[in-house]
Nucleic acid binder design. Sequence first.
DNA 1: CTGAAAGCGCTAACAC
DNA 2: GTGTTAGCGCTTTCAG
Lengths: 339, 339
Amino acid sequence: MITIKEMADMLGLSTTTVSNVIHGKTGQVSEATVERVRRVLKEYDYVPNINARNLASNQSNIIGVAILNSRMNYVNYLKDAFISELLGSIERELKEQGYYLMMCFSSDTRELIQRVSAWNADGLILFGIMAEEYQEIQKQFKKPQVYIDSYLGNLHLHGVNIGLDDRRGGYMAGRYLVERGHRRIGFIADNFKGGDYERYCGFAEAMSEAGTTVKDSDFIEVEPDERALAACYEKVYLRRHEFTAFFCASDYYALCLMNFLMDRGVKVPEEISIMGFDDNIYSRMARPAITTIHQDATQKGILAVRHLMRQLDSSEAVSDQVVLPVELVERDTVRQLES
Amino acid sequence: MITIKEMADMLGLSTTTVSNVIHGKTGQVSEATVERVRRVLKEYDYVPNINARNLASNQSNIIGVAILNSRMNYVNYLKDAFISELLGSIERELKEQGYYLMMCFSSDTRELIQRVSAWNADGLILFGIMAEEYQEIQKQFKKPQVYIDSYLGNLHLHGVNIGLDDRRGGYMAGRYLVERGHRRIGFIADNFKGGDYERYCGFAEAMSEAGTTVKDSDFIEVEPDERALAACYEKVYLRRHEFTAFFCASDYYALCLMNFLMDRGVKVPEEISIMGFDDNIYSRMARPAITTIHQDATQKGILAVRHLMRQLDSSEAVSDQVVLPVELVERDTVRQLES
DNA sequence: CTGAAAGCGCTAACAC
DNA sequence: GTGTTAGCGCTTTCAG
């Protein structure tokens, strides 16, 4: 790999001049030398040393993409369809903008911050952050950041959060089920914080508008891991007669539940109705296709990057809360109950 | 962010000494100073500047992970379940070994090489490479590399290839179908190169053992994009009476096909049988669950990293071809035909 | 229009 | 045990 200095020597020029034509600052350079330099650049197939560049310029064009999950024993984050679509979308958009993406999957805020500091990342996109972590990050990391699906309670937000109208999504699902005569509905999620909690609240609101209150025991907490999930669903199966429908906080859980029940001879939606949340491949490809609440992971990723770029460009702190809309996608897993 | 020099000044020591205790080269340093340095390290929360370190040491601990796909207009590679599982597994394993992963999704070999050269990556893991690209990469990139699922024809391999017994997988599928009385079988893939071609050959071999030859028109080429795929399946639907079964080169295509047919009232497996390949979430979660050929993406990722580490450690070129076994997973989409 | 030179933060050979 | 020093390749200010 040839260096600027070598080329400069070769041409009898200074490194400054070579560097200038590399960066297109060609206003101050004569046509002739520009041409000579360009030729050598091509001929020797010059590739800049990014480490040197970053060191000298004190910026990196790296954006860290963090998925923190304190309670999680996820083995492979990318097995999650939502996460991988989101990450793929961010990667694409970042590349388009000339930035590099650095994955930061961790369960430890300190580790995350160390990583991005060590690499001198120019910005951070964070997914699924809660209030405590948020505060730690704010304290340690002073560069632009965009949050996705993060619930910071009533903390003042420094930066941008790309969120979803989770509550309304939950409400729409609840309302839809209620309108079809369902009153005894189980809510399934792997946590009751953040977005899932909001979905629950919206759901409960719709229920109470219909004059039904949701009992604590209608909350069903499951575990993400495939085997643990099956164990949870075993219990759900035993309790199935308590419910006419289940509203799951993700399509994945909805699909797993549906399969679990169908494999035991329970008919969906004849005997039990199911709704999901996300409208990703799981609900679309399921048969019967699962009625769900739509959100757009790709769009979230794109928006996150755009907002980060805006901060990077303006170099002034922007605070913004963007809330993406949800939409009900009616498919085949909810039955109209006769009254 | 504090620097080594600052700490050294602060302590009245040289940068060497500080650097030494940072790296645990504490043999040459007195207990007392080690302690003093450590205290400052903690107190000021020292984080090394990786760009500086890389520049000075001329290595980066970065491993590029490349997915080249020349013919592909993939919008989002990570939407592919196999790729994202593989990538997640590589990420995890790389982190465990103290390396950083840099994604290189591109359709252009030159771009890839530039990227990894610019960052001074220590090694490369490449997925789905064909002979021509392989030669280009060999010429341009001189550091350790591991290939995954790459078919290099009869080129001499420099490096390691983690492959799959694709041909045998195809053969097993073909044989299985033949044993159940199927003779008119469509083969569905999005290309007829590399692994998919091998799968086809194995399949054709099993067919010819049964005294049937596969016609060119039994080759059905589809396109990855969701809408284009539907258009292809429209044609398949019209030709459905030519076949009693379809063998798809991926679970994804199998699931899409099954849904497409079922949505039009075709019963699977009663009217038509379907087999997939991969044994990933698509075949497992489908109903009826899809009979398929198993392979382990996570394992591939882990092996790729391990083999790369071996090369990195020994610093001698290793050439190796590892072929992972396949296995037939019998589920519910193949019917026994009466004779 | 072009060049000299300082410095980014760290490593490592070598000297004391 | 500890310190000096010369880079790594590039950017950027300032001077001609």
